[in-house]
Design a protein around this nucleic acid. Sequence first.
DNA 1: CCCTGATTCGC
DNA 2: GCGAATCAGG
Length: 212
Amino acid sequence: MSWTDERVETLKKMWAEGQSASQIAKELGGVTRNAVIGKVHRLGLSNRVGGAASEGEEPEVAVSPAPTAPPRPEPAPKPSVVEATVRPAAAERVVPEPRPAAPAPAAPSASVTTLPIPMRKAIIPAGQPLPPQPSANEISPEALASVREVEKHAKRLSLMELTERTCKWPIGDPATEEFWFCGLPSVPGKPYCEAHVGVAFQPMSARRDRRR
DNA sequence: CCCTGATTCGC
DNA sequence: GCGAATCAGG
């Protein structure tokens, strides 16, 4: 592969957006991140922003006002399909992506930290109706408990911190602060970790047998 | 170990 | 000019 004008354009664009060299390399294909970095330097667009020089990461918010397509965890095999109970005023939904994640206030018990009693909205997000959530009874109680246990140890990654080797299972309510991605090591080739693969990919028979 | 960018240097 | 190897770091 060679650096055609088009490929260079993609490189410039992505680099400007703050994409990492490896992500750019994947996008372009046929080149390694080293090649991308080498090219970036030759093009003289090294330090992305005037300031900072050293060190590794943290996308540093807002470098570009109009990001094209924010990388999102592939829609992937939907964790448990749905019998979405469309809510009344669900008219203006913007995110059609079905998501797993439990509606329950996550791990309530010990997670109560030391906060007074602020956010009430944290419990009732109101506004945008939540995407269809797989009802708890879609999976066996044991499995559910097991997953909950694992989720306590989740790495709690943000969208930007996800990689091909991190579990992309969302935990919590996207409308609140109580939201993050599992982040544990994903099963090679799968988008989720061992525990979440278990609840995400269920044999049809098992699912049917469990339905009421 | 995973990942990041930076540099070097033979081709 | 190119990019693998290597370095330095989180």
